[in-house]
Design a protein around this nucleic acid. Structure first.
Length: 283
DNA sequence: CCACGACCCTGCATGC
DNA sequence: TGCATGCAGGGTCGTG
């Protein structure tokens, strides 16, 4: 489900429900997801007030008044469902827990936030807020693509010696934090760059051109409420609609939308993941 | 220091 | 109807 725009959409949906509210009860319905939950997680969450809901890359960060931060990753299939709140799908009641509801946060404003994740690639962890930047999942991340540290000189330097395909390099969270398979395909399509091209073989000018394209794709996707594939929804139950703006991803066999291009979108596999591109206008 | 494949897990669409 | 296969927006780890 989630790349940076989807996680940002979830954050925006959750923040009016969670910010300023206290967790009166935390239910963990299994021992962990991708990894075991941290020691006594439910106890450490109980009574905590959420000061601020933030995001770093694809991680949701709930800054608590206990001095700890709750780190949540949605993996491939994770969702955050709101009930008992006007901004949630269920305004007044709480649906019975479903099969893959793994963590339920009961807020003092009557809302419940449920972390549902069928594939269980998601994760939760708690750390000292002061040490967040040193957390093992956070410290390995490259710059935020919508932040000031991400600019043309940075990307040129980061890709200069990369011998891997540009597709793999842009998926590397240590280079740019937050792009995933969909948005990398869309970025390379807009840039007219062939996904198998070696990063180090691209001119500085072409790499520099990627920077505004990356920012634009992400901003447009966030403004659209993210992309809804399968049953992914925003926290309020609404569907995002950026998937209607895909120009490459998921369009195998369909005509290229570039003006004057007669090509069709192809699908290849790169390191186990599908890449969609137009062989005529991406070089 | 890479780059790549296997693996983690469930659900869904497809084809026989 | 059942069953096998392949695919899915995430990431880590071991190997060469």
């Amino acid at each position: 489900m989630p790349e940076l725009p989807e996680v940002e959409t979830v954050r925006r949906g959750l923040s009016p429900v969670m910010e300023g509210a206290r967790i009166v009860r935390a239910e963990t319905r299994r021992e962990g997801l991708r990894w075991p939950f941290p020691d006594r997680m439910a106890d450490r969450l109980t009574g905590a007030r959420v000061m601020r809901l933030g995001r770093r890359s694809k991680y949701l960060l709930a800054d608590l008044d206990t001095g700890e931060t709750l780190i949540t990753h949605l993996g491939m299939s994770g969702r955050m469902l709101i009930s008992g709140h006007p901004l949630g799908k269920f305004h007044h009641d709480h649906p019975a827990p479903e099969k893959h509801d793994h963590v339920v946060l009961h807020m003092d404003n009557g809302a419940r936030v449920t972390f549902n994740d069928p594939r269980r690639f998601g994760a939760m962890d708690l750390c000292d807020s002061s040490g967040l930047e040193d957390h093992k999942l956070i410290r390995v991340l490259g710059p935020e693509p919508l932040g000031n540290a991400f600019d043309e000189p940075y990307l040129i330097g980061a890709l200069k010696h990369r011998n891997s395909p540009i597709k793999s390099a842009l998926l590397d969270q240590g280079i740019i934090a937050g792009l995933g398979n969909i948005y990398v395909c869309e970025v390379l399509f807009r840039a007219g760059i062939h996904p198998t091209r070696k990063a180090m073989r691209l001119s500085s000018a072409r790499i520099a051109g990627l920077v505004p394209i990356i920012r634009n794709v992400l901003v447009e996707a966030i403004e659209s409420g993210g992309s809804s594939l399968n049953d992914y929804r925003q926290a309020d139950g609404e569907l995002g609609y950026f998937q209607h703006n895909f120009q490459a991803y998921g369009r195998e066999g369909q005509p290229c939308v570039t003006q004057g291009c007669t090509g069709k979108i192809r699908r290849i596999t790169q390191s186990g993941r599908s890449t969609f591109y137009c062989a005529q206008c991406q070089r």
